[in-house]
């Protein structure tokens, strides 16, 4: 057990420091200003990943089980789980390339899986992107 600050709190402390003390000093150097905004955003991504990673790996594993007709459980160890997921994804890529998902209903099942995976990636990388898409979809549906 480590003393606080927790990992999330460490990331937040660095981020707030950059935002409040460093970025205001960089207004005259456009490149460095922009790069530091990017760095701040990366800290946000890292924080969200810490919170959501376990949940997303489990969800991806369960969907792969459904897709590949398997019932194995995800390894408890984080690194092993990551490795196992990478191997399953490698196999899935090979199957896709070989045409195993060209026909319905497998094609539709794969598509749902990919959509869910992309959305999960963006919940970590850029939640704003998904929110904007949802607003846009609502607006379009309303006009129809």
């Amino acid at each position: 057990m480590y003393d606080r600050p927790t990992l999330n709190e460490l990331l937040d402390a660095v981020r707030v420091h950059l935002e409040e003390n460093i970025i205001p000093l960089l207004k005259d150097d456009r490149k460095l200003y922009y790069q530091t905004l990017v760095a701040v955003n990366m800290l946000r991504i890292a924080g969200r990943e810490l919170t959501m990673n376990a949940l997303h790996m489990q969800a991806e594993w369960d969907r792969l089980n459904f897709l590949q007709g398997s019932s194995g459980t995800i390894p408890a160890d984080d690194d092993e789980a990551r490795q196992a997921l990478a191997e399953r994804n490698h196999r899935l890529c090979e199957d896709i390339a070989a045409g195993a998902y060209d026909q319905h209903p497998r094609k539709a099942a794969l598509f749902e899986h990919l959509l869910a995976t992309a959305v999960e990636q963006l919940q970590v990388a850029n939640p704003h992107f998904i929110q904007v898409l949802a607003l846009e979809d609502n607006e379009r549906d309303r006009r129809r």
Binding site: N41, M42, A118, Q121, L122, V124, A125, N126, F129
Partner: peptide, 16 residues
């Protein structure tokens, strides 16, 4: 480069 690194996680936007 922090800019180059950040592009890796932007790929999912184009994927979606």
């Amino acid at each position: 480069s922090v800019e180059l690194a950040s592009l890796g996680r932007r790929s999912a936007e184009m994927q979606l």
